[in-house]
Design a protein around this nucleic acid. Structure first.
Lengths: 221, 221
DNA sequence: TAGATTGTTAATCGATTAACAATC
DNA sequence: TAGATTGTTAATCGATTAACAATC
């Protein structure tokens, strides 16, 4: 029966982005003391339909019950949170430091082991207990240590080169904050996180709404 | 002819997120000295098809030519970049400070005028020339000043309350980094930027790929 | 048992892709 | 004029929603 699923189709991007939302909300419900929940309750909470919740869970292979704790663990396993992920951060500007200092990643089983920067002055310093190393030894570090996810917070210019190197060294995932689109390559997953793009999308929506309102008012005359 | 478009349908989320990518890439091409471009060239650069580029531009009302500078301005206008946007940041933790210190927002016509924090010790201080005010006067500030976009980088607990207040005060957009989903309300656009979700999606993709590879190897035996 | 909720298939809706006449 | 590229309509594809028998 299992053997039939030769090549599971890749989960859609939309669903891959809903999974963390499910997880976050089920976690909150567990904290609130909810014992059991229904697809309708979860759906109401995140603002969509129970049909979608059920369809999503079905697409992911099916849940084994709607007990809150069980569901939380099931979602966590789907997302891969049961595997400890070792990370390094390249670039220790404000954003890099913010990421290194984040509480909350640890309890999702993500751990930052080292930070890298090209500024020699920073060598030997620490951020939140994480040592800053010089970027010249990044390749060596990646080859000698298990690094699952590389976080790039360098300026745009440096990002591509670091990315290529990380790919060669066998990093599994790249979390990119530099304002260039790194394209997934031979076995590496890439998550681009563009603050500027996000802000522009917000700007677009604001403008779109204002335009529609102006249009409506014009109509009423 | 124009008058017929009674209610322009909202642009799809996918397209609203591609617009900044188009803009960013056309900007880069302008910098590189490109004079004219084609839908195919732009498409190749961002990794999709020329058909989609043309369809997207068509959906947005149609371009007036593929001169790089003209296209850049056209995209900028669609995104609303010609309007100066006044912003304030609530929360001056690492992430708040990173956002305040970002170069690059200004040239997109976004400006941060003030920062707010609940920590009284920070009152009177500045970050990158931006004054830190106490959050107790945020409501007064929002009523007395033009604030287009409110940036929330507070802990999850404080976000909802600040959001409600901002809505009442007529803020047009909220850029939310707190790990709660703020829902759009009466005339306010919301852009949720969840670092944790992004990291979880990356984790999911890594796990998905590993699982498929394991499956493939099993098959080959 | 009756009522509610799930798992799963089918129908609908919307977004992407293809096609091609019109234009450059 | 011939070749390439666009603007726009039509076809395809995929994701969301609806429906409903099976299960709790």
């Amino acid at each position: 029966m299992e053997e039939k699923t030769l090549s599971k189709k890749k989960v859609s991007n939309a669903l891959a982005r809903r999974l963390p939302v499910y997880y976050r909300n089920v976690c909150a419900m567990v904290t609130e003391g909810v014992q059991n929940l229904t697809s309708a309750e979860l759906a109401a909470r995140i603002g969509n339909t129970s049909a979608q919740v059920r369809q999503d869970f079905y697409t992911c292979g099916g849940v084994n019950g709607y007990n809150a704790v069980v569901l939380k663990d099931w979602l966590g396993a789907k997302i891969g949170l049961e595997n400890r992920k070792q990370m390094v951060v390249v670039g220790t500007g404000n954003l890099g430091r913010a990421i290194i200092s984040f509480k909350g990643f640890n309890k999702l089983n993500f751990f930052i082991d080292a930070a890298f920067d090209s500024d020699l002055m920073l060598k030997g310093m620490q951020i939140n207990g994480v040592p800053i190393l010089n970027v010249s030894i990044l390749e060596k570090y990646l080859l000698e240590n298990k690094v699952d996810i590389l976080v790039i917070t360098t300026p745009a210019g440096a990002a591509q080169e670091i990315f290529e190197m990380a790919v060669k060294c066998g990093v599994k995932g790249v979390w990119n904050f530099a304002p260039v689109d790194l394209r997934p390559k031979e076995g590496v997953e890439v998550e681009n996180m563009h603050l500027g793009d996000s802000l522009m999308t917000l700007s677009f929506r604001i403008r779109e709404k204002e335009e529609n309102q102006a249009l409506k008012e014009k109509q009423q005359k």
